[in-house]
């Protein structure tokens, strides 16, 4: 391998690593706040990429009826809860926000000339019909068992993943999708050629990470999420409800996932089930961070990207094996470093 190939591989690794980093941050966030190991994270990547591809080709967002269906389900569940508390005044707002709004959005999008819209607007529409799935899934699948064990939440998480993959095939078909680059072309930098899309990906990922950091460091909602992760009882007593925190971080995770998909769709063909492996690589990063440290998770994710890129050169058939084997030394080290015990019955 000569130097220019090494640089090319490094470029590839960092590009993918940036995406994995974004996903790993979302995974750490969701786990810290809700104790859910968010396996379906990768499906949001696929949904984001494939929705974008569909809209770009002038089709209606394929997931729009799922958003509407889940919205109606949320409206029903919330209304029942409100009636039980005798809070009838809240009903119109519940129905409007969860059921009417998505239906209006579906009607509106039908009258838009999707194909000829500006790229950023297409992105916005793709996000508008994927991101709401995050809080909807939290409300329907996780909130009713929010106090259950990590194990039970994990099984629910895997079940949601299964459903989203199955639905993904229905929505997007078995064929892959690819979108045009944000900006075509590239430039030569020393011995290597850099695509503009690579810069877009790394740049936007860095911006998003910085945005997330600002959100957690500066805004009261970000601090509230951190507080929930540190001490759930304390947060609850300050009026930070677990439901709100859960909904908020599932929204963030869905946004990060879908956006990641839109970012990589121009450089990789995405299929309805590719998201899973991409999400899992974010996981490897998150595990390197012990499911707790954001900087370590991001660094771990970049490492995963690089390792994947170089191993695809040396042993392309085994690149997945090599990447997933990486967690063995990491887990071994964590396991020997601290004697962590979990006692579910300890409160």
């Amino acid at each position: 391998m000569d130097f220019s190939v090494a640089l090319l591989l490094a470029q590839d690794g960092v590009t993918n690593g940036a995406i994995y980093a974004l996903l790993s941050l979302a995974l750490v966030l969701v786990f810290a706040v809700t104790r859910v190991i968010f396996i379906p994270q990768g499906e949001f990547v696929a949904y984001g990429a494939l929705s974008m591809a569909a809209i770009n080709a002038g089709f209606l967002p394929p997931t729009m009826w799922l958003v509407v269906t889940l919205g109606i389900a949320v409206a029903v569940v919330e209304s029942v809860a409100a009636l039980r508390e005798g809070a009838t005044a809240r009903l119109p707002m519940i129905v409007f926000r969860n059921a009417v709004l998505p239906i209006l959005a579906v009607i509106a999008v039908r009258y838009l000339p999707l194909k000829s819209l500006a790229y950023p607007l297409q992105v916005a529409i793709a996000l508008a019909f994927v991101v709401p799935l995050g809080p909807q899934i939290y409300r329907l699948a996780f909130q009713p068992v929010a106090e259950a064990t990590v194990l039970l939440l994990l099984i629910v998480s895997v079940a949601v993943h299964f459903m989203l993959v199955g639905l993904g095939l229905y929505f997007f078909g078995a064929e892959g999708g690819r979108t045009p680059a944000f900006t075509d072309g590239g430039f030569t930098l020393g011995p290597t050629y850099v695509q503009f899309q690579t810069l877009w990906i790394v740049g936007i990922a860095a911006l998003l990470i910085a945005g997330l950091a600002l959100f957690f460091e500066r805004s009261i909602y970000g601090k509230a999420l951190r507080a929930t992760a540190i001490n759930r009882t304390g947060a609850r007593l300050m009026g930070i409800s677990a439901d709100l925190a859960g909904k908020l971080c599932f929204t963030l995770a869905a946004l990060v996932g879908a956006f990641s998909g839109i970012l990589i769709a121009p450089i990789t063909t995405i299929y309805y089930d590719t998201g899973f492996l991409i999400g899992l690589k974010g996981f490897v990063g998150a595990i390197i961070g012990g499911l707790a440290s954001y900087p370590l998770a991001a660094a771990g994710a970049i490492l995963v990207g690089l390792l994947e890129s170089y191993s695809s050169f040396y042993a392309s058939a085994y690149k997945e094996v090599i990447v997933f084997t990486l967690i063995i030394p990491v887990l071994l080290w964590q396991s020997l470093a601290k004697h962590h015990v979990d006692d579910e019955d300890e409160h």
């Binding site: 899992l280 967690i327 396991s335 020997l336 962590h340 579910e344």
Partner: peptide, 24 residues
Amino acid sequence: ITLRLSGHFLPLGTIAWGISLYFI
């Protein structure tokens, strides 16, 4: 390698194991 850690590390480890062996 996983059972000394919290209970969710075993299932995560088995995901990696399941995928790796399948590719092998």
